[in-house]
Amino acid sequence: MKKSVILVILVIYVISVVVVGYLGIKMKAYDEVVYAERIAVISDGVDVTQNTNTQYTDEGYPLIKIPFDVNKGVAVYQIEYRIYPDNATIKTVKFIGDSNDTVTLDAVTGIVTITEAWTSVTVTLESNDGKKLRTTVVLLTIIDV
């Protein structure tokens, strides 16, 4: 065999080893369920617990103040979140809180509608993967932020 052919074979072999090692190709027998490990509530694009300006209630829950529109008589807020790790099998949560005359919480979308100023609602986000991982925030309507 020509030396050039041997050389090509060797090069291809080495490249294969590098490529496989780099890409980490591995046949997994099955997809293990990856459960949520953390639920981060996002406000103004930032994890509220990473924001040094975040205030907390006396129970240690992040407090999110939302402006109450006096003219419209309502405040509407969408609770945003992120599930970690990124490869969690189920990346949605349910929203748990008490709805009443002035507070409406959508358990699926996390949209909170409050029709009165100086009204708070405590909302717990719970993972939908069966392990019931939770995090809690408190929303408070104030007049002008």
């Binding site: 189920i90 949605t92 748990i96 009204t119 405590t122 717990t124 939908n128």
Partner: peptide, 29 residues
């Protein structure tokens, strides 16, 4: 704000119970 009640809600166990018996997005739950 004067001393003002901002929230009176059901006990946590009632909220959790209501959530647990609701129809679930993930049917496994």
């Amino acid at each position: 704000a004067p001393f003002v009640i901002t929230e009176v809600s059901q006990p946590d166990f009632v909220l959790q119970y209501n959530s647990n018996i609701a129809e679930q997005e993930n049917k496994e739950e």
